[in-house]
Amino acid sequence: MTQDTEKQEFNITVYTENQIGLLNRIAIIFTRRKINIDSLNTSPSEIERIHRFNIVITESEDVVRKLTRQIEKQVEVLKCYYHTNADVIWQEMALYKVSTDVIAEKVSVERLLRENGARVVVLRKDYTVFETTGHREETDNLISILQPYGLIEFVRSARVAIIKDSDGFNRKLREFERLEPGEDVIENEYLNQGQKVFTM
């Protein structure tokens, strides 16, 4: 139980219909409880007309489990899962704009690109845009490297995460289309993962 109440980062994955207003419906589940959303990404999934949300929050598992149930309860939500960082492979992408002159003159560009897994997206006379993808500390690291050389602009995407232990959503979706879907779809299998429902 102690693990249940310790706060840590959780990755919430939500499969939804593409519906105006649903983002708000999901967001208010967090804001109502004064829970900050650390990162939010929503984008069409591999399945046509189905969207996938990736939401990152820092909370206890106990709270996250309840939030997940509230999200799944929304009419246009097909499925909602939560995972710890250890359960997912995740990335954030970052773009860095710097002055080409300064970079060309003062930095060993080659070393910089190699050591940070960065690549050049745009190279112009007046500015250069680098891109890197990784965990927060990796994208942060390149900021601190470029800062002394006059980093002009920086932007980072929300986190996207792939669930390690997942069979994908295609088969499940077909089940949803049926009037009487099978047990694994209707059942909230995420609810009591690892504790088999019986907890006492």
Binding site: E17, E76, P181, E183
Partner: peptide
């Protein structure tokens, strides 16, 4: 209407929990 694919009005009844 009697079906919305993303909406499950009733969870499935699971006999094992009734038994327990």
């Amino acid at each position: 209407c009697n079906h919305i694919r993303s909406y499950r009005p009733k969870p499935i009844v699971r006999p094992q929990y009734i038994q327990q």
